[in-house]
Amino acid sequence: MKLTIFSVCSLILLQSFVSPFGIQSIINFISGSKDILFGVVQNAGSFLPTPSEIFGNTKNLIAGLPFEYVSSSINSVCSTLMSSNSVISKITPEVDSMYFQLMTACSKYSIPLLEPEGLLKLKAFNVTKKTVILVTGWRTTVSNSQTIEELSKAYNCRGDVNFLALDAASYVDTLFSWAALNTAEIGEHMGENLVRLAKLVPLENIHLIGHSLGAHICGVAGRTFNKLTSKLIPRITALDPAKPCFNEGESLSGLMRGDAEFIDVIHTNAGVLGKKDATGDVDFYPDGMVSLPTGCLSVVCAHDRAWMYYVETVYPGNEYNFMAKRCTSMKRLRRNKCGDEAEPMGYAATSNLKGTYILEVKGKSPFGMNGNETLEDQHVWCGTCLYAGIV
């Protein structure tokens, strides 16, 4: 294993900024860095900080190193560790303990990932409807996720889909390097069982949505599905796909063009927790290629904005809240030097779109420039069990 002195020093600097234990932490980390440098420790990946350690104390980062420098340093070290095969996940995914959860306005039903046929036994599952499968990322479970709850509520408000969430939290709720390793295996298992699901529902009705690490799981799932069937999943929507450890052409490539017929990506924490490079057929950059969109003062807020924007577009009447133009920068957009045709970001994104699209957003909900506060108020109860009981 080869690590540059620069990379090790970067890690030491990172640890000093993010750790609450100050100088002693630096001393301990220097000792660990020696092990990494000389390849003594087989599980060198354990020296990589977790995302919470890296980005949990935003004030320290603002006072110290720029966001993108921190993230790029971590990404560089992670790539080196991955290519050296010195990182071994301490928590191996057990596919037989993973579940799809079908979520309706009033109920939740768990179906083993290995038994998608079980969906047909549920009255709540309608084979004629579109099937949306959400895969979230680090530190998320189906029983404790605002992302899942909000997106489920929005889709249940529409009432025309089967909304499923994949619970993979036990295998991505760990050190980021280990979680990253597990995304490939989880994605392969998911892809294998999408083959079985596609025999139950029309393939054209399947839509995968992934946030953060979940976006890469969806990419691997789509790639695996294609390998096994020579067909493509119609659409993958990637919500701020995770940056650290995922680099095209390396051991962990993550989501790539060609993993689905159409891939739309929303970047909201570009270059930090989320990837900055275009990774889809169409890549949307709210507020341009920035790490902190309007209204966010932390990278966690920015990373979450991707799914918040998408959720807003799912509600009926909000499909065109976020209109973007093919462009290269916010500066050009504000000077009216971009394309003439504005296209919707999110739910209504059209599959013929290609390239980079830029748009402006607001700092609070409704975030879309075409958002309507009155309509938003009407959506408060839509998609909830109380609403389902009334109608």
Results as ranks from 00 to 15, higher is better:
residue 15 Q to G: 07
residue 116 P to E: 04
residue 289 M to T: 09
residue 352 N to D: 15
residue 281 D to T: 13
residue 311 V to W: 01
residue 372 N to L: 03
residue 55 F to C: 08
residue 275 K to S: 12
residue 3 L to S: 04
residue 247 N to D: 10
residue 156 N to M: 05
residue 359 L to C: 04
residue 339 G to I: 01
residue 103 M to Q: 11
residue 337 K to M: 13
residue 390 I to W: 10
residue 284 F to L: 04
residue 196 R to Q: 13
residue 285 Y to V: 03
residue 249 G to P: 02
residue 47 F to V: 03
residue 106 C to F: 09
residue 233 I to L: 11
residue 253 S to N: 07
residue 144 N to L: 07
residue 352 N to S: 12
residue 123 K to D: 11
residue 190 M to D: 01
residue 327 C to R: 04
residue 247 N to F: 05
residue 119 L to H: 07
residue 148 I to Q: 04
residue 193 N to S: 05
residue 390 I to M: 14
residue 149 E to N: 15
residue 17 F to R: 06
residue 232 L to M: 12
residue 191 G to F: 05
residue 353 L to V: 04
residue 293 P to E: 06
residue 70 V to A: 15
residue 326 R to H: 10
residue 322 F to Y: 08
residue 238 A to N: 07
residue 267 H to K: 07
residue 107 S to F: 11
residue 356 T to Q: 11
residue 239 L to C: 04
residue 169 A to M: 04
residue 320 Y to E: 10
residue 58 T to L: 06
residue 61 L to V: 14
residue 25 S to W: 06
residue 214 G to N: 02
residue 294 T to K: 15
residue 128 T to G: 13
residue 284 F to Y: 09
residue 234 P to Q: 14
residue 278 A to H: 07
residue 130 K to D: 14
residue 355 G to M: 11
residue 202 P to F: 02
residue 329 S to H: 03
residue 391 V to E: 09
residue 38 F to H: 13
residue 187 G to C: 03
residue 373 E to V: 09
residue 201 V to D: 02
residue 343 E to R: 13
residue 277 D to K: 11
residue 64 G to P: 03
residue 328 T to W: 00
residue 148 I to D: 01
residue 261 E to H: 10
residue 292 L to N: 07
residue 47 F to K: 01
residue 203 L to A: 07
residue 75 N to Y: 03
residue 338 C to Y: 01
residue 240 D to L: 06
residue 229 T to I: 15
residue 56 G to D: 09
residue 257 R to C: 10
residue 264 D to N: 10
residue 266 I to Y: 04
residue 145 S to E: 05
residue 358 I to Y: 07
